[in-house]
């Protein structure tokens, strides 16, 4: 996989160097792992996003963004009831990126203008679509900040301003780690080229994280045929208990 990636890199690089016609404003980029399997030894995944800056003089900045599926999220603020801290009223986001990482060679604010950051959705907390009203004693911004903070703490949101490796002749690559607690689904790896704070070109690749084999079987059984799944768990449990009693009595 890695060897293939570097071959492709070398080819991209050569193609760029020998290009005769004025380069079209496209951005050659790809990811090493387009299909990630969740098996019983799954501990998260790593992939490399790589490509070439099409500008011959190497002007502009590359920004790599990997986004997880947009999912609903609920945030509650704890409040004190009879001396106990219990969860307060829920504030729901209809959609929020479940995973978000933005990688560049220098801080994003120096690369892109605020309008570009907001129009391209480079700030996950700003992208999240608030669905319900916030309690009178807190603002929507508090909940957005909390979403961002909690997801950062869980390793799901990150901003890495020095994570992009520039390898000369416009070549760039970066490693993206998706932790095991990130949800399963379709991910997008976007590569953007900015010049003077504005977007010049972009390229999107899809990465699918999916359960396979036994993980897929168990999950499907538990969600689609819960009655049979429950029955199976009970039969296995009773069989194991009874079997152990039998086996250990003889020994």
């Amino acid at each position: 996989m890695r060897a293939a990636a570097y071959l492709l890199l070398a080819w991209l690089c050569a193609a760029n160097a020998f290009a005769q016609a004025p380069a079209p404003p496209d951005l050659p980029a790809a990811v090493t792992d387009e299909a990630i399997s969740v098996t019983s030894d799954y501990r998260g995944s790593r992939m490399t996003v790589f490509g070439v800056n099409p500008d011959r003089r190497g002007r502009g900045d590359i920004v790599v963004v990997v986004r997880g599926p947009n999912l609903p999220a609920t945030i509650r603020r704890k409040r004190r009831v009879f001396g106990l801290w219990v969860n307060g009223e829920p504030v729901r986001f209809a959609e929020a990126p479940s995973f978000f990482t933005v990688i560049s060679a220098r801080p994003l604010r120096e690369i892109a203008r605020p309008q570009a950051i907001s129009s391209l959705g480079l700030d996950p907390a700003a992208v999240a679509r608030l669905e319900s009203a916030t309690p009178p004693d807190a603002s929507a911004a508090d909940y957005r900040r909390a979403l961002s903070r909690l997801r950062r703490a869980a390793g799901l949101y990150s901003e890495i301003p020095d994570g992009l490796q520039l390898r000369g002749r416009g070549l760039f690559s970066t490693q993206v780690t998706i932790p095991a607690n990130a949800p399963i689904g379709a991910y997008f790896a976007d590569v953007y080229l900015f010049r003077d704070g504005r977007l010049v070109s972009s390229q999107r690749s899809t990465v699918t994280i999916a359960r396979i084999g036994a993980e897929r079987l168990v999950h499907m059984a538990a969600t689609r045929t819960p009655f049979l799944y429950g029955l199976f768990v009970v039969i296995v449990a009773l069989g194991a208990g009874w079997g152990a009693a039998l086996a250990l009595r003889r020994s």
């Binding site: 019983s40 168990v218 538990a222 969600t223 819960p226 009655f227 799944y229 429950g230 029955l231 199976f232 768990v233 009970v234 296995v236 449990a237 194991a240 208990g241 152990a244």
Partner: peptide
């Protein structure tokens, strides 16, 4: 176990297998 599997869907077969083996032994 049956009701939890059907209503809350929070019964984990793999966790259950580890717990049963350890507990019974």
């Amino acid at each position: 176990t049956m009701l939890q599997a059907m209503l809350t869907q929070r019964v984990d077969l793999v966790l259950s297998a580890i717990l049963i083996t350890g507990g019974v032994l």
